[in-house]
Structure formats: structure tokens, C-alpha cells
Design a protein around this nucleic acid. Structure first.
Length: 424
RNA sequence: UUGUACGUAGCUCAACGGCAGAGCACCGCACUGUGAAUGCGGAGACGUGGGUUCAACUCCCACCGUACAACCCA
């Protein structure tokens, strides 16, 4: 016998018992995006690899080590998308969505990164994201952060912490990068190999290291904040003033940097303490250089992406979404009962809106079928036996309440069920 | 890529260098048209491959898988 095939590592199935949380998340997110003027865009899961190497940066781990890349039959390098923004920018450019009025887009769907799975991290994961193009000011930053905040309240999620930082513009960031690199090099004998290697490749990432020794040393490191020019500082201060006005709490984290190269100025993360090591539930920032990197004329943008698995986990912890109820289980025994039952179910499902009806399959005795009806969680057992069939009737047995069972004429069954559904 | 832990029935877990056990779930019977209680019965398992041993589910090694963490990041 063949052994069963398992799904690919890190690519898990989303099972029926979890679907209600996913649906709640996606429905509320969609509604929230809509009320903020965001329109949906759907783009391919597969892009030319260059879409990502240009945007995200070829030195980042995401591009260098974590992409699912392969050549198509013509030898073009393609990659499954590791994130959404790069492709959205590509699509916006290609379809002439930019360079006009402010443009707001949202997307959702699976992303792929080749990593060892752990809690809150998988190789196929799902993101919901929003992107806002054509507004360079801090009001847009506030708007996009406010959207996140509103989404949490719409979802009933509390206790998410907003961390905030500014990376400055490209020049400031480059200057800082050099200074930080200098600092790290001066202390390289105090650092482990891994950190030194990172100091070479992507020094900003050293800032959010979890290594306590590194963190200690970093208290003396130069701060990006001190490197910001007047304009960048004003942008950041103005954003904070707007957030204060909106009553959105934030924690400034001067060591918050994002993993992807395209960010500048405002960067932020929404973080929970309830999910273990992977607590970032939403992260984003401004990417004023990205459109240019992707081959367009410069155009400002800001956005964020949310990890759906992580948000679903938070919703599941609250556990306040009730599973759908099964109204009735149709039991049928005896000569010709199968066709009568199929017919009755077919008719009732058409004539009783919202009726959740299971009909018995695989035969079985009355006892067995009642047992299945009970296990199914159904409120009612509808019984079609020989007596009912010959008399044109249906017996209704209440499985969850203390009440006498009824015998209805088939002609009145539809109305009775409508009334029953309304009453519960 | 690295580290740690764990792989026994559909699920949750036992046991033990010497016959592999239970609970839940499933199917049936007691009750041949009435579930959820009870009793009885049925079917069903040692991740893979080596090694040590008279004997391995148990000890050792490798591999595969899973979980968590580091790295990285949503």
C-alpha cells in the first residue's frame, strides 16, 4: 500500500474548525478598508524574480535565502512572492494607477518564504495589506496607522502595542549606516561572528538583535534619530502630534528597523505579547523610493502588511465566535425512504431560507441515525419512516429541548421550519 | 542553516530489555420506529533504516517528520 503523502513542510491546511476565524478577519478587514477608501487589487502569486530583488534588496535574507525561485521553460527566473508590496507597485506602474490623485489599494493572499517553521511562522502564510500612493506628508502616515488602529477595534482586539520609528530619507539612512558600521567595527572583538557578519551585510538589522550582549553594547551606539535632518525630524514630529490628537498610543523605538530595504522615514509595528516569539502582527512603513526602484518616476507610498495566521490566533484565543448551528438532521428508514428523503431535503433547502439541514447518508437503523443526528449537533431530528411516507407527513423530534415530538403534514413543514428558525 | 524536545490505534496518553494497555471517537448488540445514561462485544498502533542483544516499542546511530527557539521576519 502507498503511504499517504503529506503536505509540504510549513504549508499547512486551514481546516473547517478555523475557517470562521479567517472569515471574520477577512470580512471585517475588507469592510474596514472599504470605509477608508481602499480598493482591492489582486495580483499574481508569481512574478519575475527581479520584481523582488529590486524592491526588497538583494542583500536581505528574504531575497537571498528565503525565496522560492525557479526558471520557467524559457529560462526566465520567477519567484513566488515573499511579500505583497513589490508586486502591487509593479502592478500599479504597469496599469497606470500612479501619478494622479491619492490612490489606496488593499490586497490579501498567500506569501511564500523558505524558512524553518515555528509558532506564527510558516512557509506559506497569508497577509492582508494596504498601500497608499501619492501622499508624502505625515498626514498619510497617520491615516495608515489610524486604519490599523481602527481595524483592531473592529476586530475586538486589545493590547496591541504600536512601535514607531523614523529611518529618515535615503541619504540620512546611508550616512547613519556608515556611522553605525564604524561603531560596530570598532567593537567587533566584543561581538559574535554572526553579528559581525551582519554588521557587514546589513548593519541596521543589528539594532534589533535579541542577543543581550549586543543589546548592551548598542546602548552606546549612535542613534539614527540624531542623524535626521530638519525635514525628516519635522515629518516624524508632526506624525506623532497627529497620533496624539487621535489618541493612538505609540512607543518610540529608536532601534526599530524593518527588514526590507525599501523603507524610509516612518516605520512601525503592531506587536502582541500573546503569541510567543513571533509577536509582530502588522508591520509597515513609508517607501518613497520604491516606485523609482521599480522603474517609475519617483512617487511616494506608505503601507503595511498583517500576518493573518497571527491575527487568527488572537481571534481564536478570544474564542467568541460560535460555530454555525445545524438546524435539522433528516432521518429516513424503510422502503423508498431514500428517494423521499432526498426529495424532501432538496425542497426544504430551496423553500426555507438559511436552513442548515443534514440528511442521513449510508443508511442505518433508526437508532444509528438518531445517534448520528445527536452527534451532528442538530437541533431537530426530522423523521421520514414508512408511516410518514405513506401518510405524507414528517415527524419532528426536538433533540436539544424537552418537548413532545410533532407530526406535521408535509405541506405545513416548510412554514413550520421557517417559524422555527426565526424563533431561535 | 543551527539548537532542543518529541514520534505507540482516527484522537489523547500509558507501559516496559521478555505477551503492547486504557480513555475518547467509530461500528454493532441489549432495545428488530427514537439520540445523549448504562452494560456487553467488534475493528484499529510501536515513523523509516541500521546496530547492540538470546531477546528492542524500550538502549545506540542515521534518516524522515512534528513542535518550539535562534537566525530572519508578517
Amino acid at each position: 500500500m502507498n503511504s499517504p503523502i503529506r503536505s509540504i513542510r510549513g504549508m499547512s491546511d486551514i481546516l473547517p474548525e478555523d475557517i470562521r476565524y479567517w472569515r471574520r478577519l477577512e470580512q471585517i478587514a475588507e469592510k474596514t478598508f472599504l470605509t477608508h477608501g481602499f480598493e482591492q487589487i489582486r495580483i499574481p502569486l508569481l512574478e519575475k524574480t527581479e520584481v523582488f530583488t529590486r524592491a526588497i534588496g538583494s542583500a536581505t535574507d528574504v531575497v537571498a535565502k528565503e525565496m522560492y525561485s525557479f526558471e520557467d521553460r524559457k529560462g526566465t527566473s520567477l519567484s513566488l512572492r515573499p511579500e505583497g508590496t513589490a508586486g502591487v507597485v509593479r502592478a500599479a506602474l504597469q496599469n497606470s494607477l500612479l501619478y494622479g490623485p491619492v490612490n489606496r489599494l488593499w490586497y490579501s493572499g498567500p506569501m511564500f518564504r523558505y524558512e524553518r517553521p515555528q509558532k506564527g511562522r510558516s512557509r506559506q502564510f497569508h497577509q492582508l495589506g494596504a498601500e497608499l500612493f501619492g501622499a508624502a506628508g505625515p498626514d498619510a502616515d497617520a491615516e495608515i496607522i489610524a486604519l490599523g488602529s481602527r481595524l483592531w477595534s473592529n476586530l475586538g482586539l486589545e493590547g496591541l502595542r504600536l512601535e514607531l520609528n523614523s529611518l529618515g530619507n535615503a541619504d540620512e539612512r546611508q550616512d547613519y549606516r556608515v556611522r553605525l558600521q564604524g561603531f560596530l567595527q570598532a567593537h567587533r572583538h566584543e561581538l559574535d561572528d554572526e553579528t559581525n557578519e551582519r554588521a557587514e551585510r546589513n548593519p541596521l538589522r543589528v539594532l534589533d538583535s535579541k542577543n543581550p550582549q549586543v543589546r548592551d553594547l548598542l546602548t552606546e551606539a549612535p542613534l539614527l534619530r540624531d542623524q535626521l535632518g530638519t525635514a525628516s525630524r519635522q515629518h516624524y514630529d508632526q506624525l506623532k502630534a497627529y497620533l496624539d490628537r487621535l489618541g493612538i498610543e505609540y512607543h518610540e523605538n529608536p532601534r526599530l528597523v524593518r527588514g526590507l530595504d525599501y523603507y524610509c522615514h516612518t516605520v512601525f509595528e503592531w506587536i502582541t505579547d500573546e503569541l510567543g516569539a513571533q509577536g509582530t502582527v502588522c508591520a509597515g512603513g513609508r517607501y518613497d523610493n520604491l516606485v523609482e526602484l521599480q522603474g517609475g518616476k519617483p512617487w511616494p507610498g506608505i503601507g503595511f502588511a498583517m500576518g493573518e495566521e497571527r491575527l487568527v490566533e488572537l481571534l481564536r484565543k478570544k474564542d467568541d465566535i460560535v460555530p454555525p448551528i445545524v438546524h435539522a438532521y433528516l432521518i429516513a428508514v424503510g422502503e423508498n425512504s431514500t428517494e423521499s428523503a432526498l426529495e424532501l431535503a432538496y425542497d426544504l433547502r430551496a423553500s426555507v431560507p438559511g436552513l442548515q439541514l443534514l440528511n442521513n447518508l449510508n443508511g442505518g437503523s433508526f437508532k444509528a441515525q438518531f445517534k448520528r443526528a445527536d452527534r451532528s449537533g442538530a437541533m431537530l431530528g426530522l423523521v421520514l419512516g414508512e408511516n410518514e411516507i405513506s401518510g405524507g407527513q414528517v415527524t419532528v423530534k426536538f433533540l436539544r429541548q424537552d418537548a413532545e415530538q410533532l407530526k406535521l403534514d408535509r405541506s405545513e413543514t416548510t412554514d413550520w421550519l421557517r417559524g422555527y428558525i426565526d424563533s431561535i
